[in-house]
C-alpha cells in the first residue's frame, strides 16, 4: 500500500474556536492508482493534497506512506522521504523565474545530490521527451502557460517519483493545453506512476480510475 490515511483531522484555531479544514479523512491509495479529488472551492482539496505531500501537517490521525508512519517521522527523515518519492505539479506552475528551463529541471536533482554527468543525462532525456530541447535556455516568462506547465510536469517527473501530486494542473490552461497534460498523466500512469490530482472538471477526472469528493473537509461517501 502506497498511502494509508486513517482518521485524519486538521484544524485551525480561530477566535477561540476550532475550524476544521479536514475531518476524519480515511483513504487508501494503491501503487499505480490515478485518483482525482473533486469538490467545491474551499472544501479542503489543496489542504488534503498538501497533507499527503507532507508539505503541511495534520492534527490528528495516522498517515503511513510506503508503510512508514509519517506522523512519527522527524522533519529530516520526512523531507528525505518526500524528496525521494513525490513530485509536485501546481496550478500556478511555480517555476523559478530567475532560472532557465534547463536549470529549473536540474534543480530537484541538485537537492538529491546527483552528480553532474547524471544530471545532464536526465535533463536531456526530459527535454527530449517533452520536445523542449529548443527552449531549454528560455526563462519561464518567455513561455506560454501550457509550456510552463509542461516544464512543471517535467520537473516533477525528473527525480523518478513514485507519486505525482497535482493541484489543479490545468486550471490556468486552455482546454487544448489541458488535454495534452491529461494525456501525459494517463501515459505516465500507464508507466506505473501513481497520480493524485485535484480538478474541477468531470472530463479531467475521467482520466483517472477513482474519484474522491470533498465537502467542507469531509469525504463524501459515493
Amino acid at each position: 500500500m502506497l498511502i494509508q490515511l486513517s482518521n485524519i483531522f486538521k484544524w485551525v484555531q480561530q477566535g477561540g474556536r476550532r475550524v476544521f479544514l479536514l475531518k476524519d479523512i480515511n483513504l487508501e491509495v494503491e501503487e499505480g492508482a490515478f485518483i482525482s479529488i473533486m469538490g467545491p472551492s474551499g472544501s479542503g482539496k489543496s489542504t488534503l493534497l498538501n497533507v499527503i505531500g507532507m508539505l503541511d501537517v495534520f492534527d490528528e490521525g495516522k498517515y503511513n506512506f510506503m508503510d512508514e508512519p509519517v506522523h512519527q517521522l522527524k522533519e529530516k527523515h520526512r523531507s528525505a522521504l518526500y524528496k525521494e518519492s513525490i513530485g509536485f505539479v501546481f496550478q500556478a506552475y511555480h517555476l523559478i523565474d530567475e532560472l532557465t528551463v534547463y536549470e529549473n529541471l536540474e534543480m530537484p536533482l541538485l537537492y538529491k545530490k546527483f552528480v553532474g554527468s547524471e544530471r545532464k543525462a536526465l535533463v536531456a532525456d526530459m527535454l527530449d521527451r517533452f520536445n523542449m530541447v529548443g527552449k531549454k535556455d528560455l526563462f519561464p516568462s518567455q513561455l506560454s502557460g501550457g509550456q510552463q506547465q509542461l516544464v512543471g510536469v517535467a520537473r516533477a517527473l525528473i527525480g523518478k517519483p513514485k507519486l505525482i501530486l497535482a493541484d489543479e494542473p490545468t486550471g490556468n490552461l486552455n482546454s487544448k493545453q489541458g488535454e495534452e497534460i491529461m494525456a501525459l498523466f494517463k501515459q505516465l500512469n500507464k508507466e506505473g506512476v501513481t497520480i493524485i490530482q485535484v480538478t474541477h472538471s468531470e472530463k479531467n477526472a475521467a482520466y483517472g480510475n477513482k474519484v474522491i469528493h470533498l465537502l467542507d473537509g469531509r469525504m463524501e461517501k459515493k
Binding site: L55, S79, L95, I96, D97, M107, P108, K112
Partner: peptide
C-alpha cells in the same frame, strides 16, 4: 518567498 517555497517543495533544507 516564491523561490524559497518552490525550493522547499523540491527538497531544499533550511540549512541549504
Amino acid at each position: 518567498a516564491k523561490e524559497i517555497g518552490i525550493r522547499k517543495t523540491l527538497g531544499s533544507s533550511k540549512k541549504q
